[in-house]
């Protein structure tokens, strides 16, 4: 669990800086020059390492504090229900990304088998249908989340247009990269740790299995 936000905010930030910092925490990093993040670096909220700018631990705590939906609020309850629907789909998505990278026996997928690749791509449709439905409802509570529908759809479109890196490549806005951001944002909203997230996902998946 992240620390709850305290009343005395040691980092007075304007809205633009808050948005930039939230975005940085959700993305985990920015590559390339980021002059807009200089202030955050000076405030000790971000670190610039070569071409990469990353949030510091205190920035993650800070963003965790102000992102969290208030306990007991109706929004929080609704988002929690949707988060529970998200987790089995999340598991499925990771399995599909894995299937794209390696064959069922564990050998790397050399993409020499059009039937296999088409089958993986086809199954992304099921995940995409499920996630867009969840995002649509999440956006009723947290409108900013609506953008993930477009971003995920764009990754699939890019893939269908021939960009074979658009499913899982780590440094581009691939389906998996965008998905990780969505996941991270859900965790921030609910103040759920990764360990709790993993345990809950295992429980929900095993319950649905069979």
């Amino acid at each position: 669990m992240t620390q709850p936000a305290t009343g005395t905010d040691p980092h007075p930030l304007d809205d633009a800086a808050r948005a930039a910092l939230t975005d940085l925490v959700v993305r985990g990093m920015r590559r390339g020059p980021a002059p807009d993040l200089d202030r955050l670096v000076q405030a000790g909220l971000a670190l610039a390492k070569g071409p990469v700018t990353m949030p510091t631990a205190s920035a993650r705590t800070l963003v965790g504090g102000w992102s969290r939906l208030p306990a007991g609020s109706p929004e929080r309850e609704r988002v929690t229900v949707l988060y529970h629907a998200f987790l089995p789909v999340n598991s499925r998505l990771r399995e599909l990304c894995t299937a794209w990278q390696r064959r069922p026996d564990g050998a790397p997928n050399d993409h020499g088998d059009a039937v296999y690749d088409a089958s993986v791509r086809d199954q992304f449709d099921d995940v995409h249908t499920a996630i867009t439905q969840i995002i649509r409802r999440l956006a009723d509570q947290v409108p900013a989340l609506a953008r993930y529908r477009g971003e995920l759809g764009a990754a699939l479109d890019a893939f269908d247009a021939g960009d074979t890196t658009a499913l899982t490549a780590p440094l581009s806005d691939s389906y998996h990269t965008v998905w990780m951001r969505l996941h991270q944002e859900l965790l921030l909203l609910l103040g759920v740790s990764r360990a709790e997230d993993e345990a809950l996902e295992n429980l929900l998946v095993s319950r649905a299995g069979g």
Binding site: V25, V26, R27, G28, M29, K49, V52, M54, P55, R60, S91, R94, E95, C97, T98, Q101, G106, T168, P170, L171, H176, M180, R181, H183, Q184, R194, A195, E198
Partner: peptide, 28 residues
């Protein structure tokens, strides 16, 4: 977390205690 991706890319290898073959870390 997404914040670990730069480290994951910079590192020569990765070891995680949790997560499976289909974890985000494994995919990245």
């Amino acid at each position: 977390t997404p914040a670990d991706v730069p480290g994951l890319l910079a590192a020569d290898a990765v070891v995680t205690t949790g997560g499976g073959l289909a974890s985000h870390a494994a995919v990245v």
